[in-house]
């Protein structure tokens, strides 16, 4: 509960990227990722340019490169899958270090690695420069159904509470000498999960009653409307537009 009001991925700062309205940043990241995915995989230089663009954004947001690289580790499971592709794909073969590898599969690996890494890096930059509440406001501004935004905001607000409850149950188990070592102990853990569900659901009922007693009628009043000036839009869209130029060059060259 003492975690403060920012999520752990947010990095507080006062850079121009932090100051942009959240919905412009969301639009920019989405458009950028779409452009990256639409780029032909044979245009290797284009991906280097995309990486340079993201590097510029990270520099402007004063995000240290070490932090960015550490958070890229989330994509390790896909890397394992991508590395399998050259061995199973069809098509003509080529010899790399004595192994017959599929040319198409090698391109596939490169494709997934390059596009996946760029997508993850863009998401990491977004999460590092935008507060949670801002993200939700931005999503609502971009036309996500209000009910979905409300569910997401409840999930994020109570995520720490529920996780904390789970941690306390773990401490309670361990202080009674329990240590999960194998399949035999699944019953105990599953009972904890069941108790966690009941506690979460009942908390939801209590939260609803508390909201009703404060006049909730199905919609949360929007107190602060986020707006963006033309300058802010153009500043945010500079990233996907320059990426689009690179993409078009990649298709024509």
């Amino acid at each position: 509960m003492g975690a403060g009001h920012a999520h752990m991925l947010y990095r507080h700062g006062s850079s121009p990227v932090h100051a942009l309205p959240p919905h412009t940043k969301l639009t920019a990241v989405l458009a950028f990722v779409v452009v990256v995915v639409a780029t032909p995989r044979t245009a290797v230089w284009a991906f280097a340019l995309y990486a340079a663009l993201l590097g510029t954004v990270a520099y402007a947001a004063r995000i240290p490169p070490g932090l960015l690289l550490r958070r890229l580790a989330v994509e390790v499971p896909f890397v394992a899958f991508a590395l399998l592709l050259p061995f199973v794909a069809r098509g003509e073969r080529t010899d790399v270090l004595g192994l017959p590898l599929s040319v198409d599969g090698l391109w596939g690996t490169w494709n997934v690695l390059a596009k996946g890494t760029l997508g993850v890096a863009a998401s990491v930059l977004l999460a590092a420069t935008t507060e949670l509440r801002g993200l939700l406001l931005g999503l609502q501004r971009l036309g996500l159904p209000p009910l979905l935004v409300q569910i997401a905001s409840f999930m994020i607000r109570y995520g720490d509470v529920v996780t904390d409850e789970m941690r306390r149950m773990r401490i309670a188990r361990e202080s009674r000498g329990f240590e999960a070592r194998g399949v035999r102990h699944w019953g105990v853990l599953a009972r904890s999960a069941g108790a966690l569900f009941i506690r979460s659901y009942e908390r939801g009922e209590r939260v609803h009653l508390a909201m009703v007693s404060r006049g909730y009628e199905g919609t949360v009043p929007l107190v602060d409307e986020v707006t963006a000036s033309r300058a802010q839009w153009s500043y945010a869209l500079a990233l996907p537009l320059s990426a689009l130029v690179v993409c078009l060059l990649g298709w024509t060259l």
Binding site: A152, M155, G159, M166, G182, A193, Y201, G204, G218
Partner: peptide, 24 residues
């Protein structure tokens, strides 16, 4: 109108339950 808080809390539960590790 209970949809938002209940679904939100259940989503938080799913999120937390995904962190519960089951030793194999």
């Amino acid at each position: 109108e209970r949809a938002a808080p209940l679904a939100g809390l259940v989503a938080a539960f799913v999120f937390a339950a995904q962190m519960l590790n089951f030793p194999v």
